[in-house]
């Protein structure tokens, strides 16, 4: 598979994951680019068929490194700058629906580990095992964290969110 094919196949997945993890469209774009640049660099050492898992892990490492540098691992403030972007941007597209906007804003207020597991399980649609592989957690931890994350999410959404 050529780089172009791989990029067009997976860039949406990686961008989406980074976007929800970082809450910043520009950063998500930069880190998606960096993830594929690194893939290009380490391409020979990556097994065929394991490309997406490698891309996800690298994207996650980049995001966590970013948070460590910014010392924002537990709390990410609301970024007003998002509201001023071009109407055609993915962010604006996302906020066009009121309920999706409320859900997105609730997710972004979750702590990082809750957000991570919600993105992978509910948005990416990964299985428990796949989530374990990406996060490096065991099955019990994934299930428990997801349960707690959904409970917090429901509380933030006013208690009427039945999922």
């Amino acid at each position: 598979m050529t780089l172009e094919e791989l990029f067009y196949l997976h860039n949406q997945t990686i961008f989406k994951y980074l976007y929800y993890l970082l809450n910043d469209e520009k950063l998500a774009e930069d880190f998606t680019q960096e993830t594929f640049t690194r893939f290009l660099h380490y391409e020979k050492s990556i097994k065929a068929g394991a490309e997406l898992a490698w891309l996800r892990r690298t994207a996650r490492n980049l995001a966590y490194d970013h948070y460590r540098r910014k010392r924002l691992i537990q709390f990410v403030p609301f970024l007003q700058g998002h509201e001023e972007q071009e109407p055609i941007s993915p962010h604006q597209w996302l906020l066009q629906q009121e309920e999706a906007k409320a859900l997105y804003l609730a997710i972004r207020q979750l702590k990082l580990s809750y957000r991570d597991v919600i993105i992978l399980r509910k948005i990416e649609g990964l299985s428990i095992q796949e989530t374990c592989d990406v996060l490096g957690w065991n099955e019990g931890k994934v299930k428990n964290t997801l349960k707690r994350a959904l409970a917090v999410l429901q509380k933030q959404l006013g208690g009427d969110w039945d999922d």
Binding site: F7, E29, T37, P90, L94, A100, L103, G125
Partner: peptide, 21 residues
């Protein structure tokens, strides 16, 4: 949830990223 799942970079963003890579 599906709406959140459908989030994607624009064509222009994809082309920019690929060019930089």
């Amino acid at each position: 949830w599906q709406h959140l799942r459908e989030l994607a970079p624009t064509k222009q963003q994809q082309n920019n990223m690929l060019r930089e890579i």
